[in-house]
Amino acid sequence: MHDFFEVLNYVNKIIYEPNRLPLERVQEEPQNANYGAGTFKIFSKTVRFRVGHVTPTKLGQFVVFWEKNDNNKNQPYRYDEATDLLVITTFKNETAFGQFIFPKEVLLQQNVLSSDATKGKMAMRVYPSWDTPTSKQAIATQKWQAPYFIDMCDASDSLNEELVKRYSL
């Protein structure tokens, strides 16, 4: 399931609607369609949305995020033009479901977004809490990503509070 509207509809019914997080200005991003790509707004926050891909040989989920420059070449998103949040929805079979909700400031610190001082990236691998990486790089990546991951299988009130906090700050 990687169609933007299909995944967003699922997430909306399971997460956003029950927590009164209204979606506005929903748009698909065709250049990254294989990754359920789109943008929308929740409250005052602009959101770039992606769906992680499970790959057959590596742990974690792969995701891309790039745009075309004036010369029609792929380039990383720039910090000064980036949405407030990058949300990467992850699935593990039919049993686990979660979201990474990265503020753009964190993406700049991690050299994901480009700026005058950083090159930026056009893709990365994310490691949900249910993954146990063994390589040093993957362990370090999961460590910086962990505070931004929410396991959506937890249907408690604390999950609701956390979602509202992250989307409406």
Score class of each variant (00 low, 15 high):
Leu169Tyr: 04
Gly38Thr: 07
Phe91Thr: 08
Phe149Gln: 09
Thr141Asp: 11
Phe65Thr: 03
Asp154Ala: 15
Asn74Ala: 13
Asn74Pro: 00
Ile101Asn: 09
Asn34Tyr: 00
Lys41His: 02
Met1Tyr: 13
Thr39Tyr: 04
Lys121Ser: 06
Val64Trp: 00
Tyr127Arg: 08
Lys73Asp: 14
Pro147Lys: 09
Cys153Val: 10
Leu108Ile: 04
Trp66Leu: 08
Ile139Asn: 11
Glu29Ala: 08
Ala96Asn: 14
Thr83Ala: 10
Ala155Glu: 09
Thr39Val: 13
Thr46Leu: 03
Ser135Cys: 10
Gly36Phe: 03
Val63Ala: 12
Ser135Leu: 07
Lys136Gly: 08
Asn111Gln: 09
Asp151Leu: 08
Val7Arg: 14
Thr141Ala: 14
Ser129Thr: 15
Ala96Pro: 00
Met122Cys: 07
Asp131Pro: 04
Pro76Gln: 10
Ala140Trp: 05
Pro103His: 01
Gly60Gln: 11
Thr83Val: 01
Asn71Leu: 15
Leu163Asn: 05
Glu105Phe: 02
Asn71Ser: 15
Tyr79Ser: 06
Ala117Ile: 03
Ala146Gly: 06
Ala123Ile: 01
Gln27Cys: 11
Asp116Thr: 09
Thr39Gln: 09
Met1Leu: 11
Thr134Asp: 12
Leu86Val: 03
Thr132Asn: 15
Ile15Leu: 11
Asp131Val: 13
Gly60Tyr: 09
Pro147Cys: 13
Asp157Phe: 13
Tyr167Pro: 04
Leu113Ser: 03
Thr134Ser: 13
Gln142Asp: 09
Lys45Cys: 01
Ser168Pro: 01
Val106Asn: 04
Pro22Lys: 08
Lys13Val: 05
Ala155Cys: 14
Val11Ile: 11
Val11Arg: 05
Gly52Tyr: 04
Phe49Lys: 03
Ala138Gln: 08
Ala140Thr: 06
Thr90Glu: 09
Glu24Phe: 00
Gly38Arg: 07
Gln137Asn: 14
Phe65Met: 10
Pro22Ala: 06
Asn72Gly: 14
Tyr10Phe: 13
Pro147Leu: 10
Asn72Lys: 15
Asn74Arg: 13
Asn71Gly: 13
Gly98Asn: 06
Thr141Asn: 10
Glu28Gly: 11
Lys68Trp: 14
Gln99Asp: 07
Leu59Pro: 05
Glu24Pro: 00
Ala82Leu: 04
Phe91Ser: 12
Pro128Ala: 09
Phe4Pro: 01
